[in-house]
Design a protein around this nucleic acid. Structure first.
Length: 706
DNA sequence: CGCACTAGACTTTTT
DNA sequence: GTCTAGTGCG
C-alpha cells in the first residue's frame, strides 16, 4: 500500500484522481514533487500499472534524478528503465531508437550546444557573406524553431535569416547533428509523419505527468497532445506565478489552451504552503500582487513562527560582501550547515564576485550554471576525438580537433579542405587523401594518429579510450600545459578530464561495443553542471536554476535596478516576468531571507551608482527589517555626544601621508577596530565593530592603519 | 602558420 | 574589467 497519510486532502485528491486530463495549480512550496512521486507509486502499486509505462517529464535532469530516487524508495524499480526525464532527454531516447526513418545516417546523432551552433552559423555567414550579427541570427533560428513562425522587420536581417536557415538545417543533417530545439521538433515531426511509430509510444504510456507546465513551449505542448492521444491520462502541474522561461518560448497560455483542448478536464488547486514562514510568504505576495495579468490565487502558510526578512542597503560591493560573510558565519554559529545557504543573483556574470569572496573567506561553495561540464574545452575536445574515432563523418568534431594540440594546420588549410570535401561530397576526414596543399603531410600525419588509435581500440577496454587519446595526442603536455596561465588552471583542466574518465567508468558498459560509448556521450551532452552530487557547501546560483529547490537561508544579492530587473528587461518593458523571477527567488527561502542592494558596483569595469530594485520599493514597508534604518535610529544619540567632544577640542592637524584603500583594517582611539568600506574625497567610511558605520576625516590622527 | 597586440563588445535567463 | 575577433609581423 502506498502511504497517503502525510498528504492533505487536496494532495490526496491529486494523487488518487488517476484517469483523464487533470491540471494541478500548485503554488510555491505546496508539495508538487511529493504529489508527483506519490502519484507515480500509487498508479503503479494500486492500479497495477507497470512503472515503465508511466511517462514523467520534469524541467531539469536534477529534478528527474531526484524523482527517480524518491520513486525507488517507495516501490521496487530499476531506475534506468524508468521514463522519468526532461523533454529533451525523452526526445533523445526516442530519436536514438527511431531517427533512421527521418533519413539520418546514424542513430548516434551529435547534440549541438550553443557554442557549436554559433560556430556553424558563423561558418555559413562567412560562406554566404552575410552581414547580420551572428548572435542575433542564432536567437532567431531558435525562436523560429520554438514557435514555428517569425516576423523580422529589418530587411537585411530578414534576407540574411532566409538564406541562412535552410543552409543551416541542411548542414546539420549532413553532419548528423541536432541542436537542442531539433530534439523536440524532430520528435514531433517523427510522430506526425510516422503514425505507426507514434502508436508504439501512445500504447506504451498509459499515464503521463508533466511538471512545471507553465514553462512548456508550443512544441512541448504539441508533444503532450500527441502522446496522450490514446489513453487520455494526462496530468499537468503548474504555477503561473513561476513562469520565467518565456525567452525560450515558454507560453503561459498553454495553461489556458489546456482548459480549451480538454473540455472535461479536472482542476485541483494546491494552495497550502509547507515551505516558508508567513513572513517570507507575505513578502513574496506583496511583490507578485503588482502583476496585473496574473491569475490571482491565495497561498496559505502554516503559521510558522519566523523572522522578518532582512534588507540591507549596502554602501558598495565590498560592504555587501562583508554583510554576506558575517551572516553566513553567524548562521553557521547557530548550527546551520553550509548547504542550508544559497546566494542567488540575476545573471551569471555576477557569480564571479561572490565566488572570489567565498574563496577568500575559505567558505566551501558550489556553483549552478555557467559552463556545463560538457561545455568545458578539454571535455569537448576529448569527446570530439571519440566521435571521430567512431565514424569518419563527424565533420564538426574533426574541425574542432584537427589542430588541437597544434599541428600546424591553420584556418586556410582547413577551409581549403572544407571546399574540397564539399566538391567531392566526402567527409573532411576522407577528403584528406585528395588534398594537395602545403599542409598535406600534416593532415596525413593527423590521419595516421586517428587510424592508429582506431586499430588500438580493439586491443583495449573501452573505458581506456580516454587514456589512449591522451597518450597518442600528447594532449596534456601539448595542449593543456602549453596554454594554461598557471598551475591551478592545469590542475583544473586535467581534473576535468579525469572526471570524464571516471564517469565513463561508472557508465555501465555491457559489451565492448562502440555504441556503448556513444550512449554515454549523448547522455553527457544533456547533463548540466547541477547534476553533480551535493556537498556541504554554500550554493551560488541564478534565480532560474534554483526553481523547484528550497533552502533554509537565502540571500538575494545585487538587488538593484538595471541588474534585477535587468537592463534589457527594462528596455523591453518585460517587468512582469522579472517580477515572477523575484517571486521565485523569495519563495526559495524556508526560514531566513536576506536582501541586499549595494549603492554602487563595478559594471564593465566602471563604478556605477545603483538604486534599489523596483521590486524592493514595491514591498510593504512593515514586512521587512531595514538594517540601515535601524542602525541610524540607534546611533543618533551617540552622534550628539561626539559633536560636543569635538567642539571642545582644538582643531587637529591632518596627516596627509596616508594611503588607505577599501578593505583596510584600522584602529580608532575611541571606536576601536573597524574596516574601511569606502573612500569619498577626503572622507573615510568605516564600519566599526562596536558602533557600526561612521564617516571620518581622511588622515585624522585618531585613526591608525593596522 | 602562429604569436603578440589591440579595439571593441559585452551581461539576461537554459535545454 | 574581461573576453573575442581581427590585424600585422616574423
Amino acid at each position: 500500500m502506498v502511504d497517503l497519510s502525510n498528504l492533505n486532502d487536496r494532495q490526496k485528491e491529486a494523487v488518487t484522481t488517476t484517469e483523464g486530463e487533470i491540471m494541478v495549480m500548485a503554488g510555491a512550496g505546496a508539495g508538487k514533487t511529493k504529489v508527483l512521486t506519490t502519484r507515480f507509486a500509487y498508479i503503479s502499486e494500486e492500479l497495477g500499472i507497470s512503472p515503465y509505462e508511466i511517462l514523467s517529464v520534469t524541467f531539469t535532469n536534477k529534478a528527474a534524478n531526484e524523482m527517480k530516487e524518491r520513486i525507488s524508495k517507495m516501490i521496487d524499480v530499476d531506475q534506468d528503465k524508468l521514463w522519468v526525464s526532461t523533454f529533451h532527454s525523452f526526445c533523445v531516447r526516442v530519436l536514438r531508437r527511431e531517427i533512421s526513418v527521418l533519413g539520418y545516417w546514424n542513430r548516434y546523432f551529435q547534440i549541438l550546444d550553443t557554442d557549436d551552433v554559433k560556430s556553424i552559423i558563423s561558418d555559413i555567414c562567412k560562406e554566404k557573406n552575410l552581414r547580420s550579427s551572428i548572435k542575433l541570427l542564432q536567437n532567431l533560428v531558435s525562436k523560429y524553431k520554438n514557435t514555428g513562425s517569425i516576423d523580422i522587420k529589418d530587411t537585411l536581417l530578414r534576407n540574411d535569416f532566409n538564406s541562412l536557415y535552410n543552409a543551416y538545417q541542411e548542414k546539420l543533417k549532413l553532419s548528423n547533428c541536432l541542436d537542442f530545439d531539433d530534439l523536440l521538433n524532430k520528435t514531433v515531426e517523427l510522430f506526425k509523419t510516422h503514425p505507426e511509430v507514434l502508436k508504439i509510444y501512445q500504447n506504451l504510456f498509459q499515464y503521463i505527468m508533466i511538471d512545471e507546465f507553465q514553462d512548456t513551449n508550443k512544441i512541448q505542448y504539441e508533444l503532450c497532445l500527441l502522446l496522450e492521444g490514446k489513453h487520455h491520462n494526462l496530468f499537468v502541474v503548474g504555477d503561473d506565478f513561476q513562469s520565467i522561461y518565456s525567452f525560450r518560448g515558454a507560453e503561459i497560455k498553454n495553461i489556458h489552451q489546456f482548459t480549451k483542448d480538454f473540455k472535461n478536464y479536472k482542476l485541483i488547486k494546491l494552495e497550502e504552503n509547507y515551505r516558508s514562514t508567513t513572513q517570507i510568504l507575505d513578502l513574496a505576495n506583496s511583490v507578485i500582487k503588482h502583476n496585473p495579468n496574473q491569475i490571482q490565487k491565495t497561498l496559505y502558510s502554516h503559521d510558522k513562527e519566523g523572522k522578518k526578512p532582512i534588507y540591507y542597503r549596502a554602501l558598495n560591493a565590498f560592504d555587501e560582501n562583508r554583510f554576506i560573510v558575517d551572516k553566513i558565519r553567524s548562521l553557521r554559529a547557530d548550527g546551520d550547515k553550509y548547504s542550508d545557504i544559497a546566494l542567488l543573483y540575476r545573471s551569471n556574470y555576477l557569480s564571479r564576485e561572490y565566488e572570489d569572496l567565498l574563496v577568500r573567506e575559505h567558505i566551501p561553495y558550489r556553483i549552478y550554471g555557467g559552463l556545463s561540464f560538457y561545455e568545458r574545452k578539454e571535455v569537448k575536445d576529448i569527446i570530439s576525438y571519440i566521435y571521430l574515432l567512431c565514424d569518419d563523418n563527424y565533420d564538426l568534431s574533426f574541425s574542432r580537433i584537427v589542430n588541437v594540440p597544434k599541428r600546424g594546420i591553420g584556418a586556410k588549410s582547413l577551409s581549403d579542405l572544407k571546399d574540397l570535401a564539399n566538391d567531392l561530397s566526402k567527409p573532411l576526414f576522407s577528403a584528406i587523401d585528395n588534398f594537395e596543399g602545403s599542409a598535406r603531410l600534416k593532415l596525413l600525419a593527423f590521419k595516421d594518429i586517428i587510424n592508429k588509435m582506431r586499430k588500438e581500440l580493439s586491443n583495449i577496454k573501452l573505458t581506456e579510450i580516454i587514456d589512449l587519446i591522451l597518450k597518442e595526442t600528447n594532449y596534456i603536455e601539448d595542449e593543456i600545459k602549453v596554454n594554461a596561465k598557471n598551475d591551478e588552471e592545469i590542475e583544473d583542466r586535467v581534473s576535468n578530464i579525469y572526471e570524464l574518465k571516471s564517469s565513463l567508468a561508472a557508465h555501465k558498459v555491457s559489451s565492448n561495443n562502440l555504441d556503448n560509448i556513444m550512449d554515454f556521450i549523448q547522455d553527457l551532452s544533456l547533463m548540466t553542471s547541477q547534476d553533480k552530487e551535493d556537498t556541504d557547501s554554500v550554493l551560488l546560483s541564478t534565480y532560474h536554476q534554483v526553481k523547484g529547490l528550497e533552502f533554509k537561508n537565502v540571500f538575494l544579492t545585487s538587488f538593484c535596478d538595471t541588474i534585477f530587473p535587468s537592463q534589457t528587461a527594462i528596455l523591453e518593458n518585460n517587468i512582469e516576468e522579472e517580477r515572477r523571477i523575484c517571486y521565485v527567488g523569495i519563495t526559495r527561502a524556508k526560514d531566513n531571507l536576506f536582501i541586499i542592494s549595494p549603492m554602487e558596483k563595478r559594471i564593465y569595469g566602471e563604478i556605477r551608482s545603483l538604486s534599489p530594485s523596483i521590486f524592493f520599493k514595491e514591498m510593504d514597508k512593515d514586512l521587512y527589517y531595514d538594517v540601515l534604518k535601524e542602525r541610524k535610529k540607534n546611533t543618533t544619540s551617540y552622534t550628539n555626544v561626539k559633536k560636543n567632544v569635538v567642539s571642545t577640542k582644538p582643531k587637529v592637524e591632518l596627516n596627509t601621508n596616508v594611503d588607505y584603500k577599501t578593505g583596510d583594517k584600522v584602529n580608532h582611539e575611541k571606536f576601536g577596530v573597524g574596516t574601511i568600506m569606502g573612500i569619498m574625497g577626503n572622507t573615510l567610511v568605516i564600519n566599526f565593530d562596536s558602533v557600526g558605520l561612521k564617516k571620518l576625516l581622511l588622515g585624522h590622527p585618531s585613526i591608525k592603519k593596522i
